[in-house]
Design a binder for these strands. Sequence first.
DNA 1: CTGAAAGCGCTAACAA
DNA 2: TTGTTAGCGCTTTCAG
Lengths: 342, 342
Amino acid sequence: MPKSPEADSRRLQMADIARLAGVSTSTVSRALAGSKLISEETRSRVMELARSLNYSINIGAQNLRMKQNRTVGVVVPYDPATRQHLSDPFFLSMLGSLADALTEQGFDMLVSRVDAGTLDAAATPFDTGRVIGIVLIGQWRHHDQLNQLAARHVPIVVWGAQLPQQLYCTVGGDNLAGGELAGAHLLAQGRKRIAFFGDINLPEIGQRYQGLCQALTAAGIAADPALLVPASFVPNGGRLAVDELLARKAPFDAVFAGSDLMAMDAINALRQHGLDVPGQVAVLGYDDIPLASYFHPPLTTVRQPMQEAGRALVAALLELAEGGVAPSVQLPTQLIIRSSTV
Amino acid sequence: MPKSPEADSRRLQMADIARLAGVSTSTVSRALAGSKLISEETRSRVMELARSLNYSINIGAQNLRMKQNRTVGVVVPYDPATRQHLSDPFFLSMLGSLADALTEQGFDMLVSRVDAGTLDAAATPFDTGRVIGIVLIGQWRHHDQLNQLAARHVPIVVWGAQLPQQLYCTVGGDNLAGGELAGAHLLAQGRKRIAFFGDINLPEIGQRYQGLCQALTAAGIAADPALLVPASFVPNGGRLAVDELLARKAPFDAVFAGSDLMAMDAINALRQHGLDVPGQVAVLGYDDIPLASYFHPPLTTVRQPMQEAGRALVAALLELAEGGVAPSVQLPTQLIIRSSTV
DNA sequence: CTGAAAGCGCTAACAA
DNA sequence: TTGTTAGCGCTTTCAG
């Protein structure tokens, strides 16, 4: 007997408890909800019965009736081209920190992944009434689509950079300051030819690059376009960027990478080309993923405060979901100096 | 005006579409469901209307009526003592691979974290009718509680080791074989004093250790209890284990760590003690997390096949949820030889 | 081909 | 203090 479609024991429901307790469903409902209208004796009898029978209220029905909901959607866009799997440690950490923050607030988390090309699908869990709002991890270049969602009054908050003309709420690190910190640190180490690895069309990355440029300017150094390498977040993006940079034959003594992963990849590549890190080339990452400190050499990087990020995202979303307004927030970033630059 | 509890525009529902289209809700329902009973003209009119108004069916109500559900619960137990945040890259990867597998099957993923001490809370999303079953990541030492859940007919599949007297379905790597592979490799490198870092009370870890012992036995070497260090998965568990091992003054020329993270931590600690890896001590990890290859030296490790893991977990769960039986499965593991042991 | 009516499992007036 | 009744938004017989 492979499958028994309709199993033996139908799922227990309130009516069953009511019958067994010899009361009406209203009474059961009230007892379970802890209403003060119920006699102590009845309440305890009902609760005891429910517990011993392992009965739990059907949340779907309850939600329908009460028009409430304690679930938020977290969506992670993926690149339809690479069909890239959710694997960047940074995103994953963010997921973890969101789970923590939501648990703390008594909310559940419905995770879905959507094709970044059709980002309005991100709103589906909301449109279908499954969640009270959406947290989107990864702004990428979908500013317009996000604006449309916001215009549709989808409660949505996205992890990313603040942009002009932005209708939606973002929570993100202070990328400009982060870039500047990084630049200033490298300059302080005596580096003058600082290469930047990253796709500056991505808002966050662009701002980090701007920050770097500000630091350079402040030091009276002009940013050299030959040192800007448009690396992407593909698995060996750092290596490719190193190859590209070397091919350009522009001298450099430091690399500021758009993410820790890219920095690590770059370091390995540099080493294979016989370049010493940090001796000949200082390398600085971004994010401070857990493994940055385990790397050899331990990675100097700009930390994005994950735990606070999760909390801030959740706080903003709940505010929006309640019909309030949630201003975008920028979380402070922090330079973590390890051995890859000194 | 901070909040507007009941916003301007009530959420659209089927009745609205029906009215606007001048038909009954039955017709709308059928049209949207693609029933063949509806005239082509009516269907397209309704669908067009729905699309232009951005209407989506309320899944909660639909589920209630149809007694169906396309959501599965993924629960990640956390240690109540350390209140440890969901941060181990391996768990996170698993989450990603589950998300992929579920998306592939058209299911949503409801993630929750539960206190490992009260593991029966893991069934809550099922008991409350929110999900059709549970995938539990991390068996830990909760064999009995898991058995109880299974006895209650909660469709549940757990990532972990197969144990005797097990009522629930597990999907896991072949830890015994993994341990043996690791041991054989180290022995083949001429290492004879192999230390093991990990808590062998955890089923998976215990089996890995057993595998190591088998390899030793096959080589005619007796396992030395002085080389078994009960390290745990705390952030600096590897370092602590190294300290402990050195304090014991038992000579060793290799370390087999219970996870990649622990291996990396151990390598850093060994290095600080002036020991060369792999020159004086070969170090081998477990999991093959993405960053294992980025580490310096790149880490030799036993790979657990994540993508297949996700798929297998989901397949088993769906089978169970349909009332079928799902045998436990062991996924093959693979030794990935990099530089930390050769 | 379409509509009226009943009901999924629950809660909340309103009565008693 | 408790029960009766009317829905929450949807699908689906059963009659037209």
